[in-house]
Amino acid sequence: MLIPGIPRLLVLAFFLLLPFVGNLYLVNQFTLLLVYGMFAMSLSLLWGYVGLLCFGHAVFFGLGAYIMAMVTKQMIPGMDGILSSSLAGILAAVGFNALFALILGWFLFYGRLSGPYLGIVTLAISVLVERIFINWYYTGGYNGISSVPALSFAGWEFSDPRHLYLLVFVLSLCAYLFLRRVVNSPFGAIISAIKHNEARAESFGFHATKYKIKVFAIGASVAGLAGALFAAAAEFVSPTELGFKMSTEVLIWTALGGREGLIASFMGAVTVKLLENYLSEALSEYWVLIIGFIFLLSVIFFPQGLFGRLLENRNKGWSVTSPQRSKTKKEGRVC
């Protein structure tokens, strides 16, 4: 790549210009795609940058969506007036997720869960929470919560799809810049060190577990923000959003796009979901089969994902496939 920033600028320009070019259907569709992209970026932070393979990441997305829906529909006792505004909903979703992830992280990471173990435990959490919400009649059980109010700030309602799109776009951009800041900061250097060799990072005096818990909370918060925006943009939330299916999807988006890059995983989500919107009608049930196969092939042949090389230019020496890393992985403790 001659000028490494160009593809990323093209992505930015495309998403910025879209609402002024596309029709309303397209704009509505892309609002949700931005939300999914933000969700994928939060998984990329945990998985690609810290090596926390989270098989149940949808639990944070779904909880964010449910909290947003419950706050703005005044379903939480004692929260009305200003406390049931969109902003309160978003803050509650992000805050609750951060707290939940801190507590969960404290249990899991101090329990020395890592690698595949962590992945499956998070998967189990996601399946469990999905089952709780299916059986919880207050939140609509299997049908979830519908007619969630649209976003509004200080009396200004985002009822025009183009305005909503631009708002979600700005928030996605903020989420990207925030996550990029995190991974490029000294804090990011430490989490990268932990990913590549935890024992070495600890011997340098960094408390790996504490850093992992913090990153887990950051990733969960961003996923919660995406979930909150999803609830407001789609105007509904159902147990599907926090369960097995969504967890599977976000993992596939991130893996196909490129787990080791924020923009790459964002584009993975957008591409896969866009294809799904157009192809799933023609292919019906075969779509999942095909995407499963593509996922399988990408794990074997393109561990960096489809956009990993194109959109990211960072630390080439540390890629998934480099022999240096795979060696430490093989010899390191897996459990």
Binding site: F55, G292, V299, I300, P303, T321, S326
Partner: peptide, 25 residues
């Protein structure tokens, strides 16, 4: 995938998606 042991979990997961969808079909 022996040299990328963490990726085996992803690969077998892909297999599980394919098998499950195959059964549904």
């Amino acid at each position: 995938l022996y040299h990328r042991i963490l990726d085996t979990i992803l690969a077998t997961w892909g297999v599980s998606i394919v098998i499950k969808q195959g059964i549904i079909l």
